[in-house]
């Protein structure tokens, strides 16, 4: 009986503390969403107003005045295009290394990982100058090329670990039946690993959407994605908190949902398969 009460007390404590910690960590996001429904006057008021008539005005203004749709479209195009490209280039590489490993495979994999560790500032100058000379500055194409390359190692690694989990017998059986390489990948491998492939795609999407080094340095008005739009609110004349909050909420909402959906699988990609 005593053991039982002890357990109940412990469970209650764990529950309360966990919820408190979670509420604390989530508070900035909650506060941002709340502020986005206030008027500018309310957003600045001190003490902060907790009870107010919610307004959608900020969202309308953000859509109309700051050209939100153009920035959002840039984000969508750049992150989808770079993720699709990275998948198209990465799936064959992962397939080859997972099912036809050679002596060099492990070395190649680790070398790919090492390219991910190159600090972006180390190549800022040449990339900036190359982009300028090739007229790729402030273009979506420029960003797509860079995002594809910086996500490629993660994509190859993540898919590689999923392909490794596929029983070899299945593929061998279908090769015995005379399936070509393309048929084998298209009709057997991709359907089996669909879950893993979608998580990989989502991770690549999340990383591209939130990327804020190259987007800030290589884009201006034409190709700037949402990260750059939000950064423009840092100037003093842009200090409209309610509108900043509305623009921010819109910018993070889709990615937040993607993150929630794929949280368990993301660990694999984020740790290069070292933690599953």
């Amino acid at each position: 009986m005593k053991l039982h009460t002890e357990k109940v007390v412990k469970l209650t404590l764990v529950t309360i503390v966990s919820w408190l910690v979670a509420a604390l960590l989530f508070f900035p996001i909650f506060w941002m969403i709340l502020t986005s429904f206030k008027t500018e006057l309310n957003a600045f008021s001190s003490p902060p107003s907790l009870f107010f008539w919610p307004t959608l005005e900020n969202y309308f203004v953000v859509f109309e005045r700051s050209d939100y749709v153009r920035y959002a479209w840039n984000s969508v195009v750049v992150s989808f295009a770079s993720s699709i490209l990275a998948m198209l280039i990465g799936i064959p590489a992962a397939y080859s290394m997972a099912f036809f490993p050679t002596k060099r495979t492990q070395g190649v994999l680790l070398w790919m990982l090492s390219t991910k560790m190159l600090p972006p500032v180390g190549v800022l100058v040449p990339i900036y100058l190359l982009a300028r000379d090739m007229s790729l500055l402030d273009t979506r194409t420029g960003l797509v090329i860079i995002y594809t390359l910086i996500n490629l190692p993660i994509v190859v690694w993540m898919i590689y670990t999923y392909f490794k989990d596929v029983p070899k017998d299945i593929l061998e059986a279908c090769r015995m039946d005379g399936a070509s390489l393309w048929q084998e990948i298209r009709h057997v491998l991709i359907p089996i690993t669909m879950g893993g492939l979608s998580s990989t795609f989502l991770l690549s999407l999340i990383l591209s959407w939130n990327e804020a080094f190259w987007s800030l340095n290589l884009t201006a008005s034409q190709a700037a994605p949402l990260t750059a739009l939000i950064a423009s609110y840092s100037s003093p004349e842009g200090l409209f908190w309610a509108k900043l909050s509305a623009a921010s909420t819109l910018a993070v909402a889709p990615i937040l949902v993607f993150g929630w959906i794929s949280q368990k699988q993301l660990v694999r990609g984020l740790t290069f398969g070292a933690v599953k």
Binding site: T15, S18, W19, V21, A22, A23, L25, F26, P28, I29, W31, M32, T35, A43, I206, W209, N210, A212, L216, L226, T227, A228, I230, A231, Y233, S234, L239, W241, L244, S245, S248, A251, V252, I255, L256, F258, G259, W260, Q263
Partner: peptide, 28 residues
């Protein structure tokens, strides 16, 4: 409510750095 707690806990990781910085700098 553990699964909801987990979702709340990992959420900040998915917020883009510029949003993160400006929400903290201004609102908080």
């Amino acid at each position: 409510g553990r699964s909801l707690v987990r979702i709340l806990l990992i959420s900040p990781f998915f917020i883009m750095p510029t949003v993160n910085a400006l929400v903290w700098k201004n609102l908080l």
